[in-house]
Design a binder for these strands. Structure first.
Lengths: 191, 191
DNA sequence: GAGGCTAGCGGATTACAATCCGCTTGGCAA
DNA sequence: TTGCCAAGCGGATTGTAATCCGCTAGCCTC
């Protein structure tokens, strides 16, 4: 009922939902702020409506970046198809996960605070990400490049460090370092 | 002028500082809340005074847990004295860093949101922690247990996952797993 | 010990977030 | 097509955070 994948009975509801998303996207791109009141005015709806559609700022931000999150998840099979599993994993971390994190204003912040309320990640973004990590793990274990027994949750925790990359610094390099560190930790054989 | 290590000119200032810390500690231990108004009333000072001493909730929480943070940092040489460097590192992560994180209400939350404002970590807590990690790294590199070239910042990012441990779950085990994963990633030799 | 000076106080005030409920209006049945 | 029903709306209202400035009182000089 909140994050927008459902299609509610009434047409105006859908319309409002869309309007709010547009306004929020504009606000995020512009100032990086997500003031519900401001967004409501901008979208031409009441504040209550905004809150009804998105109970928390995190939910709103994640909805705005839903496309991006979905892309991160869906690109996994593609990468696995094009590259050997070990390379796919690295590419995924640096060019997709880190990339969107650094590129989309407020995404990293939102995730950081969203996950503050343990497991209450709005939508199914968290499960989706876990699934993606799981796929990467599986493929690598099957290929013999990663030792078995690692859980997606554990690896996700390791990747959590990506949230603290500096968008104004050399985050690409830093992400690669972290991926490298974790890779060594996961690897089946030394190297 | 904020985090309490300084000793301001006026006596009442010091007194207020102390009072606020006591009230905040009580509030944290009790409800886990850090409402500035409530703390001001409880401490018998004006809200303005609280804000003057601690500009953000994070600053206040970190000040309350300053002792703990200091302990985490100071225990490093002790551990290095008592144990071989590799064991010292693991013990440190699980029994000290993770331990305080899970044990002190709101510490992990505070750190998570505090670090949201990149590098604006109040006080010198961040530098202290970096130093501690650096010491651990050095000792291990010297002992040949960890490959050289790793930066404290990188390792800290890896440890960042500790912030998402579940205080109500088996965090001790999870912390050990993460330490293990990172350890493999840092290790000089396979195993 | 008295007086001046300013650091620091306190809480009234302002700004903002979030809720809640009476009203509107789209959807559906007859 | 009309009328009924409730899903959904909007913004007045309430609660809380954060600021700001006139005043108090600690410190230092003489």
């Amino acid at each position: 009922m909140t994050t927008g994948s459902v299609s509610p009975r009434r047409a105006d509801t859908r319309r409002n939902h869309e309007r709010i998303l547009v306004a929020a996207a504009a606000s995020l791109a512009d100032t990086g702020e997500v003031s519900f009141n401001a967004i409501a005015k901008q979208a031409g709806v009441g504040v209550g409506t905004v809150y009804r559609h998105f109970p928390t700022p995190e939910a709103l931000i994640l909805a705005v970046y839903r496309r991006e999150v979905r892309h991160i998840v869906e690109v996994v099979p593609v990468l696995l198809g094009k590259h050997p599993p070990d390379k796919a994993l690295r590419l995924w971390v640096t060019d997709h996960v880190a990339h969107y994190m650094m590129t989309k204003k407020g995404l990293a912040d939102a995730l950081r605070t969203a996950t503050a309320f343990r497991g209450e990640l709005p939508g199914d973004a968290y499960e989706d990400m876990l699934g993606a990590v799981g796929k990467m793990l599986e493929a690598n274990v099957a290929a013999g490049t990663v030792r078995p027994g690692l859980t997606p949750v554990l690896v996700m925790r390791g990747l959590g460090g990506l949230l603290w990359l500096d968008p104004d610094g050399d985050w690409r390099r830093d992400a690669a370092s972290l991926a490298d560190l974790l890779w060594h930790g996961m690897a089946a054989q030394p190297g």
